[in-house]
Computed example of a mutant assay.
Amino acid sequence: MSHKYLSALSALTLLVLSACGSSPQASDSQASSPAASDGSGFAYSCQQSLVLAGDDAVEQVFSDAQWEIGPLGFPVPYSSTAGGCQVLDSGVRAGFAHTQQGALLAAITVVAGYNPGATQELFDDFDAKIAPGQGYEKLRAQAQENVQKQPRLLGSDDVKVIGAKVLGFDSEYASFEILIKDSKSPVVYAVTVPLQWVDGDWKHQGSTTSYYYDSRLISGAIGSMVSFPVISPEQVEQ
């Protein structure tokens, strides 16, 4: 399998990732479906069957998670409690629980599971994954340009998505740092992922300063984080 990601950072060409996969529940659709029309407030009917975690502790988000290899080769989690229950036409997952755990899985998908500029199919799901707002038009234009230019793609052997930190959470907004490590050096980057609950799902708020998201180099100790139990395609394929 060809494991790839789209270079997104100008200094050290870090990443924007993408993913797809199989259904976490028998009721999942393998393509986009109409939004729920029964007044539930969810974007997809499958979200109504997500089981809300008792304390919604982010440390427990992987307790029932399954992992899959996306079309660009990176592990992505989904869960019967936190979601990712809808598989869109491009293969990217949507349909997350309206909880902190659901927001965290949505944030992981932003970094390890979706890149609107990687393929036309992923770009076509832009509105399902990106929240309207200040960074929307800039991100859409840059993503469309990347689809046309097809920038150089790198391999999943180059980086690992290793963990996350919670920056903030409430019922409408959430923010995380997703930690990405260079496989060949000690270099670790923290990617900031702001999310908004809009149209019944967690969607990424596009960056206003860079393509897709902002990042920073972690120069010292990483500190406390939610560690990911799966960080390589080989772990999923075992």
Results as ranks from 00 to 15, higher is better:
G95C: 07
V188N: 03
V187E: 11
S40M: 14
W197L: 02
H98Y: 09
S215E: 11
T99H: 05
S29F: 10
S207F: 01
P229Y: 08
A174D: 13
D127K: 05
V191Q: 09
A143Y: 04
D214L: 09
S171Q: 15
Y136E: 10
Y136I: 01
S156W: 08
G83Y: 01
G117S: 07
K4G: 05
S23R: 11
S2I: 13
S22G: 14
I108Y: 01
Y213P: 00
A43D: 02
A103L: 06
K4R: 13
A35E: 08
G70T: 06
C85S: 09
E145C: 03
L217H: 08
V193D: 08
A82L: 03
V161A: 03
I218L: 15
P34T: 13
S224I: 03
Q66D: 10
L14H: 04
V87M: 10
Q150N: 13
F169Y: 15
T192M: 08
V16E: 13
P24G: 05
D124R: 00
A19R: 07
S232C: 00
K138Y: 12
S80L: 09
R93W: 09
Y136K: 00
Q66M: 14
A221I: 05
Q196S: 12
N146I: 08
L72P: 00
D89I: 00
R152H: 10
Y212D: 01
S37P: 00
A221W: 06
E68P: 00
D182P: 02
V166C: 03
